[in-house]
Amino acid sequence: MASVLAVITATVVGLMVGVEFSVAFVINPIMLRLPAAASLMGRAEGGRMLGRAMPFWYVGSLILTAALTAVAWGTPAATSALIAGVLLAISVIMSIVLLVPINNRSTTWTPENHPDDWKEQQQRWDRLHYARVAIIVAAFVLVLVAATTFQL
């Protein structure tokens, strides 16, 4: 059962990291290069779509990592899992406090109705997102370390 939990946790966290990495380094750079109207519409739709899914994915990843920590407690894997969980908790807090407010505003913007500083707000979101991606990549690596160490 512990092996299954380790695989599920690594898979869920890994897929989340892949989506967020893609948003940071593929999708949003493309959106910034589009004409303003297309960029606004694309980012708004992406924000709505991912804004519905990502809270469950982030919290689910955190819960799975906490469960992996509990199951691995007393083994060398527990430290890696615990630190991964702390990093994922930081990413959740960072999302709620810093990124979600910008995302919620941007999902309402249209080519006809947006603030003058829309591009600066999007770039601020992107910078914060880069930091969040670095945090969740580190958490993912630690989940993998915990999963493989626990299996030994």
Rank of each mutant, 00 (worst) to 15 (best):
P35W: 03
V17D: 08
D117A: 01
Y130G: 04
L142R: 06
S91K: 02
P115S: 01
A70N: 07
T11Y: 15
V141L: 11
N104D: 15
R43I: 09
A10S: 15
N28M: 10
R52K: 13
T79Q: 10
G74W: 05
Q123T: 07
Q122V: 06
H114E: 01
G85L: 00
V86A: 12
Y130N: 01
M94W: 06
A36I: 00
G46F: 05
V59S: 08
I63W: 05
G18Y: 11
R33L: 04
A84L: 03
R105T: 02
G60N: 13
A134N: 01
T11P: 15
V86G: 09
T11C: 15
T107P: 02
R132F: 10
L144S: 08
R132K: 11
L62R: 02
L50R: 02
W118M: 00
P101T: 06
L62E: 03
T110S: 13
I96D: 14
R124M: 13
W118L: 00
N28D: 09
I93Q: 13
A89I: 00
V19Q: 05
A77V: 02
T107N: 08
A36W: 07
T108R: 15
W73L: 05
Y130D: 06
P115C: 01
T65Y: 09
F21M: 06
L40P: 00
A37H: 04
T11D: 15
S39V: 00
